[in-house]
């Protein structure tokens, strides 16, 4: 028994079994994207929001593309989790908002997801930040 507020409810562990055909279609799509990446280096991406698959099938997809060697976390407008799956070249990108709820979720078939690369604007910001520190650092070195 779990509870929703004050109302006790009986939880039935019946999975909402989906249709494996839809899941198969998605995996086939990822397979052809990966073949393209291997062939000419072009990236692909699947927006998981638009997929009409059951929660059960979604879990299954997660198991096929389980976490592999690389994992990165980005803190920008909430947490974004990126990992490369055990199927190398297939990345799973989950954008959360500040409350931890999923704002967008993609499977990206690429060398490295775009969100991990530093945008030129931010590089300029970084340079500026670093340069403001340089004079102080230089002074410290001279003194020492």
């Amino acid at each position: 028994m779990s509870e929703v507020g004050i109302f006790p409810i009986k939880r039935l562990d019946v999975p909402q079994a989906g249709n494996r055909g839809q899941l198969l279609a998605v995996v086939n799509e990822i397979e052809s994207m990966l073949a393209r990446l291997a062939h000419d280096g072009s990236s692909g991406s699947i927006d998981l929001r638009g997929l009409p698959i059951s929660p059960d099938d979604r879990d299954h997809l997660r198991r096929i593309f389980a976490e592999g060697e690389v994992r990165a976390v980005i803190h920008a407008l909430g947490r974004t989790e990126v990992y490369e799956s055990i199927v190398r070249g297939v990345w799973w990108v989950t954008h959360h908002d500040d409350d931890g709820r999923i704002a967008a979720e993609f499977v990206e078939v690429t060398y490295m997801p775009e969100i991990l690369k530093t945008p030129p604007d931010d590089i300029a910001d970084g340079l500026e930040t670093l340069r403001t520190q340089l004079p102080t650092l230089a002074e410290d070195c001279h003194r020492a």
């Binding site: 920008a76 407008l77 974004t80 954008h95 967008a104 775009e114 945008p119 910001d125």
Partner: peptide, 22 residues
């Protein structure tokens, strides 16, 4: 104080919402 990367994330989420290609 919103970084470009954060803004890109917002745009990715919104493009997804609008069913635009990534």
């Amino acid at each position: 104080g919103i970084s470009r990367r954060a803004f890109m994330k917002f745009c990715a989420a919104t493009a997804s919402l609008l069913a635009l290609p990534p």
